[in-house]
């Protein structure tokens, strides 16, 4: 459908691939994805921090009302995830929705986020899945 321009995919690749968050040098808080100013105190004095790859599931929703292109992995689980220094919303994969519990440990995994039609780009990024190894 041509929604993902090369430039847009390219610009955002680093934070999408590596869980790079913004961190405010003024108030110390982290936010993901990195913004132009701290969402908490408004400071533009920011640096970057790589977020932990393991966190906990605060809440989740099992979404059946998904777009057609995501039907192959529906229902899609959307989770609110606490990574300690920041929270984020992300897709939770590799689990039967019925097996998921609030409080579960989840780990970051590198996945396809979107595939743009038959000829467009493959967009990669981070999703999460329940930790079962180690």
């Amino acid at each position: 459908m041509g929604e993902w321009s090369s430039a847009r995919v390219w610009r955002s690749r680093v934070y999408r691939y590596r869980l790079i968050a913004g961190r405010c040098r003024s108030c110390g808080r982290a936010h993901y994805p990195p913004a132009n100013a701290c969402p908490y105190c408004g400071s533009r004095d920011l640096d970057e921090v790589e977020l932990p790859r393991v966190g906990r599931l605060i809440s989740y929703s099992v979404v059946y009302a998904t777009p057609f292109e995501d039907r192959d992995r529906s229902p899609v689980v959307i989770g609110l995830i606490d990574l300690g220094i920041a929270r984020l919303v992300a897709e939770v994969v590799d689990v039967k929705p019925g097996d998921l519990r609030v409080g579960d440990r989840v780990e970051a995994v590198f996945r396809r986020i979107a595939v743009d039609g038959n000829t467009g780009l493959i967009v990669y990024g981070i999703k999460f899945r329940p930790v079962r190894v180690g």
């Binding site: 809440s59 929703s61 979404v63 995501d70 992995r73 959307i78 897709e91």
Partner: peptide
């Protein structure tokens, strides 16, 4: 679209997780 809707939140994905919370 840079955070929540970067993922396939469909209709009500965010509302659903807030409801569970």
């Amino acid at each position: 679209t840079e955070s929540d809707a970067f993922y396939s939140i469909g209709l009500g994905g965010i509302a659903g997780l807030l409801m569970r919370l």
